[in-house]
Write a protein that binds this DNA or RNA. Sequence first.
DNA 1: CTAGGGTTAG
Length: 609
Amino acid sequence: MPYLHGSNHCRFFHSTVTQRTPLSLSHPNKLLEEERIASLIQKCPDMRTLRQIHAHFLKFPANSSSFYALSKILAFCALSPFGDLAYARRLFAQIPHPNVFSWNSMIRGSSQLPNATKEPIFLYKQMVQKGFALPNSFTLAFVLKACSLILAFFEGRQIHCHAFKHGLYSSPFVQTGLLNFYAKCEELVAARLVFDEIPDKNLIAWSAMISGYARVGLVNEALELFREMQGVGISPDEVTMVSVIQACAKAGALDLGKWVHAFIDRNGIKADLELKTALIDMYAKCGEIDRARKVFHGMDVRDTKAWSSMIVGLAIHGLVKDALELFSRMLESKVRPNHVTFIGVLSACAHSGLVSDGRRFWSIMHELGMEPMMEHYGCMVDLLCRSGLFEEAYSFVNTMPIMPNSIIWRTLLVGCKSNGYLDKAEVVAKQLLELEPLNAENYVLLSNLYASSSQWEKVSYMRKKMKDNGVKVVPGCSSIEVDGFLREFVVGDESHPEIKEIRKVLREITERVRLVGHEPWTSAVLHDVGEEEKEVALCEHSERLAIAFGLLKTKAPLPIRVVKNLRVCSDCHEVTKIISKAYDREIVVRDRVRFHRFVNGACSCNDFW
DNA sequence: CTAGGGTTAG
């Protein structure tokens, strides 16, 4: 065993010196000695040097200085980027009574692995159960971080109790650790309770809470908190702004996003790599691909995520050539693509039916030693289906080394429809409904597939099956941003406080559009039959409400931007063009993020309610 | 030895 002198080492740790003498009693030379050791170990360039230092200390008889050195060595192994966690584990196993510092090193070290495991939590459990060392605020902060990485909700909640038990709840590090943990687990109510209990909220706490809201799409809450934070005199930094921009991206709130970008410049906040990447993503998702490009070109350093967000952005805009060109430039720049980059590249190929390119990228991925994930299989299935190679797509799915998920089967089912393989649809549908019996989308898709081939009995059978299984349709939803706030309108929801006024405007629109000689709101062709027909028409309802609200609230000739959660088709745009003309106001309706659906001129507006 | 941040298919 090259990493320790077995017997020597054990004797060393079994020596009577298990506790460091209090600093006040220690010899001044000893303090100097410890400082020297710490800086020596900190400067270690690699494990080889560290082992030499380790060996040096093992040669000498145990004293408190060498004990100190050993714990520093352990910390280096566990935490340094040049360290070696396996070495740290072996070293740690030799310590009969590790102190808190050593436990903390191990807990933090084991949570810094690229693939997070439960190891840090197990270590913490051991520490608490053994009772040799009491956790301190560092311990809780580290273990909470570990819990947030693997979303270990129950463990984290228990640590919340430990914070009280050990009197560590007042530590700002424990508080933000808890807050962040709940936020990552998407337990926003719990996160908010912790947040509200923090007496002196610092920038970190505010940022963590805003990030939590932005992550789950509670955009108004995120923005409200951003305003509130400035109200109490805390200035945001670039980390805060990433979450604010992310909130705008999630909502498709372009005007807000632009305002926030201007805010960043105006307040001299440094737009670093992460913030610029978030800006690229925001502009791309809000439909302003050229602004996204501008941010990208203005970057002096670009890492994998920066390249990926630009490539994915181009791909969702259907700018396939640009996306692939950028990918080549990325390779030339020697930035290693990751799985997200390949999702962008493969989906770009799918949007333009570039089969041979897609296959080429598929093998490049293998050459780079990357194992394709579910998403990549999904892109390939989509690519093959859109290129008319349904049979190949079908056998591709059936020979996948991982179990296809519902998205894969659904992609294949859409492929059945577009390629006219209706016989295969039954088999595919069976898989899909077994995997996801409660998703209304599947029934609608299948029902429309039958309707397209006039199999009306099967259409009503799907309706019946849906009813029997108690499957509920998720209502359509549109949103509009007015004065920096997002207003959401959901089909069938009449709870808006101004619904009466909105309805009045809606009636007026109907009249004015009729005067122009158009039948309002009926331009979406209804594919469906029977009693459910009304619901299909209703999918436009949320959009109508949002436009009406916009006309009610915004008198200035600003464009009214409505973002839809559903797919938008050219017919929907036709309707808004008519309203625009009648009111002499620019009205823009956008699908939330999925610009690429227009790529092949195909619109699936009628596939969904 | 502590806390908050970016890209993900249909």
